[in-house]
């Protein structure tokens, strides 16, 4: 525990001078996720709660299995619970529970444990788990059920309790997400309902309004670095504005780009993960803008409707490079260091 704390402070020291310690920031973020989870239960029913719990259990199980002999058991810092929550909130409602559980296992196992635990991982564990699930089960992971509407909070999607390792038996009705509609049918959902969140999508990505409020609070409490969301959202807005001005029939409205998909959720909760983001303010700007550019590239020109998850993972991979170029004094004199 003591060791974990120290590591985070050492890594974060160049800019986090306001005394963020791992458990405090982490607790803050877990609290911040609770209203998002509640809202998703409101929209999608009790199924969403099951999925979140299942993903969290998967992560906690791995954390416990591989660290039970260690004195400083990292379970106590709550990071496995946070990862499970974050992962669960990016999954579609009605995802079979065994898949959510597997996602949690991969997120912690491959995303954290093999790297040596919290503070050493280079990729965002929750998004890694999600990328693994999306690659493995592309159909289940893109079957976005429509909000439950009148059926009542306690109604459960039939696909939720699919037998482990088996396919979803029933053809569930998939509501196309706004980004899907944009990409494949050229229909643009109106920005208003995106803002409130009554649209198909994963739990966490539905209400831009709620996420903006929570992000604001977290920034004010200094639990997250404001530069990364600012750079990410700003660059997405500017880039899509440019395309929108070039051809407004082909390319969507920049507000649509901001409020659709998982962008808001990623900007507030995923990109700001202090372990997998750069150390310096300059690095944070590069990191955010890079993510924005990749997101716009994939959304507008790629084959997939949403790219923000891949954008975060790809920019995670560049963090060591960003740290290197944005921190010349700490690392000697750049390339000359390694010369023969």
């Amino acid at each position: 525990m003591e060791k974990q704390k120290q590591k985070l402070i050492v890594q974060a020291a160049p800019y986090l001078s306001h005394g963020i310690t791992a458990p405090k920031a982490m607790l803050d973020i877990i609290y911040a996720l609770i209203p998002v989870a509640l809202l998703s239960v409101w929209f999608f029913g009790i199924s969403s709660l099951w999925v979140i719990i299942s993903a969290t259990l998967g992560g906690v199980l791995v954390e416990w299995l591989f660290n039970r002999e260690r004195a400083d058991n990292p379970l106590k810092d709550g990071s496995a619970i946070l990862t499970g929550l974050l992962l669960g909130l990016t999954l579609p409602a009605g995802l079979p529970l065994w898949m959510a559980f597997l996602g949690g296992v991969v997120a912690i196992g491959l995303g954290k444990t093999v790297w040596g635990g919290l503070g050493n991982n280079l990729f965002n564990p929750a998004l890694l788990g999600r990328a693994f699930l999306l690659g493995n089960f592309p159909i289940a992971m893109t079957t976005w059920p429509a909000p439950i509407g009148d059926a009542g909070i306690f109604s459960v999607y039939p696909s939720t309790f699919t037998w482990p390792f088996m396919q979803v038996a029933t053809d569930s009705v998939s509501g196309a997400t706004p980004l899907n509609l944009m990409k494949f049918q050229h229909q643009f959902t109106d920005v208003g309902s995106l803002f409130i969140g009554n649209v198909s999508g994963s739990y966490g990505e539905t209400s831009a309004l709620l996420l903006l409020v929570i992000g604001g609070v977290l920034i004010l409490r200094r639990s997250i670095d404001w530069r990364i969301p600012a750079a990410l959202l700003g660059s997405v807005f500017v880039l899509s504005l440019i395309f929108f001005m070039v051809d407004s029939r082909l390319y969507p409205n920049p507000f649509f780009m901001l409020f659709s998909g998982g962008l808001m959720f990623a900007a507030v909760f995923m990109a700001t993960d202090p372990v997998t983001s750069p150390l310096t303010p300059k690095g944070a700007w590069i990191f955010g803008i890079g993510m924005g550019a990749i997101t716009v590239l994939i959304r507008l020109f790629g084959g997939l409707p949403e790219g923000v998850m891949y954008a975060v993972l790809l920019m995670n991979a560049t963090v060591p490079l960003i740290d290197k170029i944005s921190q010349p004094r700490a690392f000697g004199h750049g390339l000359k260091k390694d010369g023969q």
Binding site: L110, T113, V114, W115, G116, G117, N120, L122, F123, L128, A131, F132, G135, I294, L297, I298, F301, G302, G303, L304, G307, M309, Y310, A311, L313, L314, N316, A317
Partner: peptide
Amino acid sequence: DTPALVKGTAITLLAAGILSLAFMGFAGL
């Protein structure tokens, strides 16, 4: 402090796998 068990080629392969996973996002570009 990568665990000794993972060090060397194993972690390099896993990292390459993760990178490969992330590059799947470019499909259809």
